[in-house]
């Protein structure tokens, strides 16, 4: 016992040329540790700056009026068809995903009594991790081939909806969980039914969180490529409003397909498409930040949660 404590003390007071070596070692370790952490962040940050600068500089260089006023013709022209298609597919996907996603969120947060809620929660979390190309292929064999919809806006939107649902479910469950229990109980005590408590009280109070989740889902569906390649197809023309049997263009396809072409006009379209996607996602991120930070002050007329 005493031997151990002696060694400890000796180690503690170890000194070299009058310097406390243990303290020195700890200091060194501290500096090395922070150095490593800063380096790690620097690596991440520089990659990020490089990505943003590449897209911004080359994207702005590729911009022209033609890009937003013309449709694609071969590997040149504009991106109007793709911009329209991206909006149609993403908004369609999110609109389809909101009812089941929000309902699941409400159910998980408010009626978590039986075995159904944990099952939904678990499967929804597993669904988040299913690769998007698998969902795309599922859409291909079911909707495009078996149902005979061919490449179409409906198939693309449904594939995106499957991807968005678990996110909306998750975020709305967490947002509704934030509503104080007492508020819910008071509403029930006043005689309100399930529907009124859920829609009138909980969803209303949790609206900023739910909106953030929906914006997140919108950002995800705008950026997705893999699930659309074999469900939405690609089209050089403006969408004619048909939900099935009519392929539709989208921006992420333009990035993937045109950057590998040898022509500079194709490259310009790819960079412009990447710029639009990045700007859109940046705008959505800012917006959702504002919704969270302002708790709705900015957008929802000052309703404090």
């Amino acid at each position: 016992m005493s031997a151990t404590s002696t060694t400890c003390r000796v180690k503690d007071r170890g000194s070299l040329l009058g310097i406390n070596t243990r303290l020195l070692r700890r200091r060194m370790f501290d500096i090395l540790g922070w150095g490593f952490c800063s380096l790690a962040f620097l690596l991440l940050g520089s990659a990020m700056v490089s990505i943003f600068l590449t897209v911004l500089i080359r994207g702005i260089g590729a911009l022209s009026l033609q890009v937003v006023t013309h449709v694609t013709s071969g590997t040149s022209g504009g991106l109007l068809n793709a911009i329209e298609g991206t909006l149609v597919l993403a908004v369609g996907g999110v609109l389809l995903a909101v009812p089941p996603g929000l309902a699941a969120g409400i159910y998980l947060s408010m009626f978590d009594t039986g075995a159904l809620a944990p099952t939904i929660r678990f499967l929804s979390d597993v669904l988040v991790g299913v690769p998007s190309i698998v969902i795309g292929y599922f859409g291909y064999i079911t909707m495009v081939v078996s149902l005979g919809w061919q490449f179409s806006a409906a198939a693309g939107s449904l594939a995106l909806a499957i991807i968005c649902m678990p996110y909306i479910c998750r975020t709305s469950e967490m947002a509704i969980n934030q509503v104080p229990r007492g508020v819910r109980e008071s509403a029930y005590a006043l005689g309100a039914g399930d529907g009124r408590v859920a829609m009138g009280i909980c969803v209303r109070m949790a609206l900023p969180g739910i909106i953030t989740g929906i914006l997140l889902a919108l950002a995800i569906s705008v950026g997705e490529t893999a699930p659309l390649l074999y469900t939405a197809g690609w089209s050089n023309y403006m969408w004619n409003g048909h939900l099935i049997r009519e392929p539709i263009g989208y921006l992420t396809y333009a990035i993937w397909a045109f950057i590998t072409e040898p022509f500079s006009s194709a490259h310009a379209l790819a960079y412009a498409a990447a710029l639009f996607i990045i700007l859109f996602i940046l705008a959505i991120s800012m917006l959702s930040r504002m919704v969270i930070a302002g708790r709705g002050n900015v957008i929802f007329g000052g309703k404090k949660v």
Partner: peptide
């Protein structure tokens, strides 16, 4: 079809889509 059951049915779509993916594949 009370509110609770409607949310349960709609919400089950989230879980059902995973089952459908595995089944149809």
């Amino acid at each position: 079809f009370n509110f609770r059951r409607i949310t349960a049915m709609l919400g089950s779509l989230v879980a059902a889509s995973l089952a459908a993916i595995v089944l149809f594949l």
